[in-house]
Design a protein around this nucleic acid. Structure first.
Lengths: 215, 215
DNA sequence: TAGATTGTTAATCGATTAACAATC
DNA sequence: TAGATTGTTAATCGATTAACAATC
C-alpha cells in the first residue's frame, strides 16, 4: 500500500510559503490565482509551482488557474494544519517564552500546554496563562496530556536529555532550537532551527557578496 | 577578476555544520580527522565533504586526512567568523531579548550594540547591558556606530518598515525573523528565519511519516 | 469559439555519488 | 615501502525548466 513516488523534502519546504501567500490573498479577498502570478510573488518559477502542486493532485483548472480558497485549504490539509496539536516547551528562558508568546503558532493549531524548566525561580510563573513547571514532571505530564510535539529551547547541554525524555514519553515530533544534532529513534521526527547556522550563512554572504549563486 | 566557479548555496549551508563539529573536536583535543569520520558525525557522505571543502582549497593531506585546528580556522575565515560585526536588533519583545541574551552570537563575533522598540514601556530598559532605545533613533544610531547587520524581531507588520530604515542607513545584511519576505535592493543580503515554515514542515512529516524521502 | 492556463512529458541543468590515480 | 586518504574526474541521480497538448 506504499505510495510509489514520495515527495522530496525540497518540495515540502516550499509548501509553507505557498500557504502563506495564499493566506494573504484570501485575506485580500482575491479568489483566483495563476501559477504565473504565484511565481511573481514567491520567486519560484511557474513551472516549478505547477510541478510542486501536482505532486499532491490537480488543484487547478485549465484556462482559469487556481481557486485561492480551495488551494489554501488543500495545502493546509497536506501540511496537517487542519487539526490541533498539543505541545510543550522544555526551556523557559527568553527563547522558550518567545515561542510561548507567539500567537501565530497557537492560531495555526499548535497549542502550548505548558513550559518546563529546572530553574526554581521560574517554576510557578506564568507566560500568558501557560504555567512553567518543574522539568521533573515533564514525562508524566506528556503521558497524561496527550502531547504530540515537544519543543526544545534549552541550552545545548540539556538538549539531548530532553530529547531522551521526549522519546520515552511518546512524543512524535521534536522542534529543536538547541545548536546540537539530537540522537533519536528512526520514528521520531526532528525539525531543527539552527540559528547559529543561519547567522553564519548571513556572515558568509556578507563577506563574499559576488561569490555565490543567488537563489 | 571575477571567480569562474561560484559556490552554490547548498554547499554554503553545510559549512556551519562542519564548523560546529570541528569546534567540538578541537575542544576534545582531537587534532586529526578524515572525511569518513566527518561523514559519520555529520551525516553527509565522505565524497560530498571532500567535494565541498575543495571548493575553497585543498585543506587535507593524502593518507592523513584533515588537521582539525587548521580546517576549523579556514572554515571560520571562509564564513567570515574571524572578525567582529556590529549589529542592532529592531523589536525588543521576547524574541529580540532572546537573541540579545544568547551568548553564542556574541562569542562568534556578532556584537549587539542596542535594541530598538517603539513601546515606551520598554525604552530605557536594559537586557544584560544592552539598552533598549526608541526606534526613532535607529537610523541615526546605525550611521554613527558603524552597524553592519540589522536583526528584525518585530511583528510582521513592522518588518518592511524596519527593512527600509536598515536599507537607507547603510546596513549590509538583515537577519529577519518576521514571517514576511522583505523587499530590498539587490546588494542587501537577507537571511530569513521563518519559524512558521519550519513548524509547518514538522507538522507535514508528523502526518506523512512514510511519505517522504529521508534526508 | 478563442484565449488562457493547467497538467505532464521531455530536455536541461546541477548536485551527489562512485571510483581511482596521486601522494603523503 | 605499504597503507591510507585525499583531490578530482566521470557516472549517476534528482531537480528545475521548457514546451505543448489537453481542456476549461
Amino acid at each position: 500500500m506504499e505510495r510509489e513516488n514520495r515527495v522530496s523534502i525540497t518540495v515540502i519546504r516550499r509548501l509553507p510559503k505557498y500557504y502563506r501567500y495564499l493566506g494573504d490573498l484570501l485575506r485580500k479577498g482575491i479568489n483566483r490565482i495563476s501559477s504565473q502570478e504565484l511565481s511573481k510573488m514567491t520567486g519560484f518559477t511557474a513551472s516549478q509551482i505547477r510541478q510542486d502542486l501536482n505532486n499532491f493532485g490537480g488543484f487547478g483548472q485549465q484556462g482559469y488557474g487556481y481557486n485561492v480558497e480551495e488551494l489554501h485549504d488543500q495545502l493546509g490539509k497536506i501540511l496537517g494544519l487542519d487539526r490541533v496539536y498539543n505541545t510543550v516547551i522544555a526551556g523557559a528562558g527568553n527563547l522558550g517564552q518567545a515561542v510561548a508568546n507567539y500567537k501565530g503558532f497557537q492560531d495555526a493549531g499548535f497549542k502550548i500546554l505548558a513550559l518546563f524548566d529546572k530553574n526554581p525561580k521560574l517554576i510557578g510563573l506564568k507566560i500568558r496563562d501557560i504555567e512553567i513547571r518543574d522539568v521533573d514532571e515533564l514525562e508524566k505530564y506528556i503521558k497524561e496530556n496527550n502531547v504530540e510535539i515537544g519543543i526544545i529551547t534549552t541550552p545545548k547541554e540539556s538538549a539531548q536529555d530532553v530529547a531522551d525524555i521526549y522519546s520515552r514519553s511518546g512524543i512524535k515530533g521534536i522542534w529543536n532550537f538547541a545548536p546540537a544534532d539530537l540522537r533519536v529513534d528512526d520514528e521520531m521526527i526532528v525539525e531543527n532551527v539552527h540559528l547559529n547556522e543561519s547567522l553564519f550563512t548571513l556572515s558568509y554572504f556578507l563577506n563574499n557578496k559576488s561569490d555565490y549563486i543567488r537563489d
